[in-house]
Structure formats: structure tokens, C-alpha cells
Amino acid sequence: MYSEEELVKRCIKQDARAQEEFYRRYAPKMYGVCLRFAKNKMEADDILQEGFIKVFINLKTFRNEGSLEGWIRRTIVNTAINMYKKNVKYQQDVEIDKADIKQHAEMSAFEDIAAEELLKLIGELPVGYKMVFNLNIIEGYTHKEIGELLGVSENTSKSQLSRARQTLQRKLAELQNKKHE
């Protein structure tokens, strides 16, 4: 098993074994990212495939100043964004919905919930909501950055996040009720 630095060097030199090890090491985590962004499993497979091809092609541009995993993750996220932009023909700017952006304080009931269940809830979100929620809440992008990446206004990003939260809270509550029944 190679060190991260050695692995990168070998991958740049097109060492097939190192490339496979690289993939095996990082693919599971990235597949989780893909599943969150994709509308179905097939699309997640495509994102992972195209993302890793980009990673291998551009690995020589990686500077060791940051985390390799973070760099791969951003490449995968960008691939997902490109896929999303290709599929979205028209996106309407909407006003920020300030109706209900407060959060439910009590979340302790969900401590045992599995990631797969949350993934299912995210998968049920409208595609725009899902993108913004993933980018902002999980990946840490600001609304300004999301606006630039998705080609929407900052307000649209905020509004979609707000609605995504509302939807998810409702769904979480439903899930909670089901579990208690």
C-alpha cells in the first residue's frame, strides 16, 4: 500500500496498479457524494466514472498544498454540477421564502437514523433544492459561490435552500412518526 504522495506520483506515471489502488481508496467516499447529487443510481455511476477520469487526467495539476481527498471531492462535485447543468433546461429565479426558515431544535430523535435513509429523503427533493442543499449544507459552499456555479442568483440559492430545509424537516417528521408507530 502506497503513501498518498507515492500513490499520486505513480498515478501520474500511469501505473495501472497504483491507479486501481487510488480508485479503491477514494471511490467509496466519492460514490456517497455522487449518490447525494444524482437523481438516480445510474446517474451516480456516471458522475463517479466521469469524475474519476477527470481526476486521473488532471492529477498532475494537483498541488500538495491541500488535501487530496478534498481535491478529488471538488472534482466529483464539479462533475455533478456539470451533469446537473446539462439536464436543467430552464431554472426560474424565485424570491426568498422567509416563511419558515427556523429550524426545529429537537433533533436528538434522529441519532440512530441511517445515512441511507437520509439519502432517500434527499433523493426525493426537487433537483434544484437538492443541489443547493448538498452544496451549502454538506459541501460548505456559500450562496454566492453556488450562484456562480449553478448560474443562478444568490437569492435563488437561498430560497431553494430554505425550501429544501422545510421539505426535509417535514419528511424527517414523517419518518419519525412512522418509527414511533
Binding site: 467509496p28 433533533m107 449544507i137 426535509l168 424527517l172
Partner: peptide, 25 residues
Amino acid sequence: NYTNMDDLFRDKFENFEPTPPDHIW
């Protein structure tokens, strides 16, 4: 104990590592 929903999602997905299908590689 999650204080808000965002933390719940962040935490649950932090170590979410499903195995991708073999055909992708």
C-alpha cells in the same frame, strides 16, 4: 444530540462510503 438538521446530515454523511459497482472501474 443534534442541535439542528444541518448537523444531522453533515454527520451522517461524513462516513457514508457505499461500495460502487465493479463495472465503473
